[in-house]
Design a protein around this nucleic acid. Structure first.
Lengths: 206, 206
DNA sequence: TTTCTGTTTGAATGTTCATTCAAAGCCTTG
DNA sequence: CAAGGCTTTGAATGAACATTCAAACAGAAA
């Protein structure tokens, strides 16, 4: 799973760290390779020895996000609560806690890239989709684990996707207003919807 | 309301049309001024005579979107149905009809810019927020018009914001997967939530 | 016709961009 | 120690970038 410890591993990590941070803070197009080089403490030749192009570096950053989804995003959520329904809201709460200290100046690193490079970089789009799919799969798993607390006729795939929709759409508005209110509003409405679903699940026949 | 017909009015329109289209298709940073000039059939001096900078041009594009919100976005929706609740879903349906013919290659022009330039261009962010606020205000108005069909204790501001969340978050996923499914899923869950709210409104005491 | 204001022309500017490459260095293997 | 292959160095390259400006032009006013 982890690559062999060749001399370039450190360099590769430093580049990926710097690139991921800068792409998140400034966007892909607005981040110059020279800035990545400076922040990573590396020369152009080293970067281009490891990554054939800036686009390939972006691809590597997105592959890394996929790898980090469990340890960085999902494991802390699952450690917070064991109730599958509460895990959904713990996940949404975690994003709030990550971004509200910065007044929502940054958005979701994947979502930002999704809107910036989705149709200009055909080879990147699948990597973004893979991140979204992985994220949704966890939510979907939790909804499954909720079993018959949720209505039997509920489309759980749809609902899992909607949780991501709420997170991304809410974060976008929070960023535009530099305030948590819009994010909280959407999460609060989702909670209200879940309350309804749980009532309907509890009232099931048989 | 409309500017006086000075000779530069046509030029200004052509530039704004081209810039709006290109920013939507390619993003702000990925669109070169030279491309805008070519597509608008205009020379650099003309553009810089009317707009002091590329950033100022972006600001003008966003002001124009604000002006077009009613005639282009909301009036067609209000013409489609007079039922205020159905207008919410007609609005969401309209975005689907705009973007599905292009396989969701483009996203919401405002949303795209929101994530791309929100924190690098401080003077632009309020213009994005104004667009969002105007959009939400229509939804909010419709929710008001629904009167006691909706529960009295419903936070209608929150719900109106959530409708935008669903649109933006759904569109982002539709773009990443090049498919309407993710968008439809979120709209469908919102419909289910509205059905619940309408039931609860109808069942009100008194 | 002359003057004036606003508009357009388009070549030129200087900067920043992603990328290249020959040379030097390092580290492992024989 | 010698050989060979990654790895790093960092100056150099050419393209694309946003922007400028002096000069030409257009149309209205006097």
């Amino acid at each position: 799973m982890s690559p062999p410890p060749t001399p370039a591993t450190d360099t590769r990590s430093r580049i990926l760290d710097a690139a991921a941070r800068l792409f998140h803070e400034q966007g892909f197009n607005a981040t110059g390779v020279s800035t990545i080089l400076r922040e990573a403490g590396v020369n152009p030749g080293s970067l281009y020895n490891l990554f054939p192009s800036k686009d390939a570096l972006l691809a590597a950053v997105l592959e890394r996000y996929t790898e980090l989804l469990h340890p960085v995003v999902m494991a802390p959520v699952e450690a917070r609560t064991s109730d599958p329904v509460e895990r959904v809201f713990a996940l949404l709460q975690q994003y709030r806690e990550w971004f509200s200290p910065l007044d929502f100046r940054l958005g979701c690193p994947i979502g930002n890239l999704a809107l910036e490079v989705a149709d200009s970089h055909p080879e990147i789009r699948p990597l973004i989709k893979a991140n979204f799919d992985g994220w949704i799969a966890y939510v979907r798993k939790w909804l499954d684990e909720a079993g018959d607390r949720l209505p039997a006729d509920l489309d759980r795939d749809q609902l899992a996707g909607t949780v991501l929709t709420i997170m991304e759409g809410g974060l976008m508005q929070a960023r535009s207003s530099r305030s948590a209110a819009a994010y909280d509003a959407s999460v609060s409405q989702l909670r209200s919807y879940f309350d309804f679903l749980l009532t309907r699940g509890a009232a099931r026949p048989g």
